[in-house]
């Protein structure tokens, strides 16, 4: 028990240290704009199909559940208002971070881990470049940019698919669903959802890279690191979500 607590603290410390180094290196010229754009395409654009499918089903399932529950109170017309708060503030950012974010992070861990075990990261350093600047910085920036964008897209898709369910299953017209959905939300609800995605984006990039750099020796180690990344992403995202929800929704 004490051992795992010590490990968790060390791990968190390593994460923070890497973030600070990446920020310190990243803000200096050259900014690596090309690498950042390349990573945004590699991570963000290639995650569009998954984002689409996840959001589609989240919107439908959540609307279905809320519709069912509200029918008991004869309040099914409120389904738009109920779904909007849960989806925009919570479900879309978190589910996308857990699925798309985990996909992005494991991709990074596998790639950087393979580079680590084949000494390519040492090679970058010995050829006079900084591995954190070259590899970590563009990935963290790209993830931080990509995840909020995907989240915005996910919100639109989830709302639309929810509206279809409301209309077809619960006889709440799509237009009415949309009306209640949008009026229920304050600007702060959007902002808090986006802020969550932004922070999740940083964490996804950071954990993905850190696990890659921490990979030990041999190809087996790449598999171990990648698995750890999934676990770490799940725990850290949900923990951070809880903390941020408490900050945004003071009782």
């Amino acid at each position: 028990m004490g051992e795992s607590i010590r490990e968790a603290i060390e791990w968190t410390g390593g994460l923070v240290r890497l973030l600070l180094i990446a920020l310190g290196q990243g803000v200096r010229r050259p900014y690596g704009i090309y690498d950042i754009f390349y990573q945004i395409v590699a991570q963000g654009v290639r995650s569009l199909p998954l984002t689409f499918v996840m959001s589609l089903f989240i919107g439908m399932v959540l609307t279905y559940q809320f519709g069912e529950a509200l029918m008991w109170f004869g309040a099914k017309n409120a389904v738009g208002s109920a779904a909007s708060l849960a989806l925009v503030r919570e479900i879309v950012p978190v589910i996308l971070a857990l699925t798309v974010g985990a996909k992005i992070a494991t991709g990074m861990t596998a790639e950087l881990g393979s580079m680590k075990v084949s000494e390519q990261i040492d090679a970058i350093a010995s050829l006079g470049a900084d591995p954190v600047k070259k590899l970590v910085w563009p990935r963290i920036v790209a993830a931080t940019v990509a995840l909020p964008f995907l989240s915005v897209l996910g919100n639109i898709i989830a709302m639309a698919s929810g509206g279809v369910i409301a209309d077809m299953v619960f006889d709440v017209p799509f237009a009415y669903f949309y009306e209640t959905y949008v009026t229920q939300l304050t600007p702060f609800d959007y902002i808090s959802g986006l802020l969550k995605s932004l922070v999740f984006g940083v964490l996804v990039g950071l954990i993905g890279c850190y696990q890659g750099f921490e990979t030990k020796f041999g190809t087996e180690a790449v598999g171990i690191s990648t698995t750890k990344t999934v676990v770490a992403i799940s725990i850290v995202i949900l923990f951070t979500d809880f903390v941020m929800t408490m900050m945004f929704l003071p009782v």
């Binding site: 580079m115 000494e119 040492d122 090679a123 350093a125 010995s126 006079g128």
Partner: peptide, 23 residues
Amino acid sequence: GQRQLVALRRRMSMVFQGGALFD
């Protein structure tokens, strides 16, 4: 420090086991 290491590696280079070429 980082800057001096870069200067050092300008004068000394390493051939890694397995090559470590960038894939």
